[in-house]
Amino acid sequence: MTHRSELTEIARRWAVRVADPAFDDWDALTEWLEADPANLAAYEAAAEGEAWADRALRAAPKK
């Protein structure tokens, strides 16, 4: 078990990396997700944060 805030940081690091179009470390992501059921929830929370900002910024009038 990883400490909660530490897990949040690790999950965020994964979310940042996966968002890169050149990301290709999928097997390592699989292994990390398999390592602890809490990891998936943390990863999804991180992915939702970025998606939330994307939606808002994309809807913004162009500057």
Partner: peptide, 16 residues
């Protein structure tokens, strides 16, 4: 670049 992105993601997550 990664540090800047981490920082931005963290701030956005706190805001959300």
């Amino acid at each position: 670049v990664e540090k800047d992105l981490q920082k931005a993601y963290r701030a956005i997550a706190d805001l959300k």
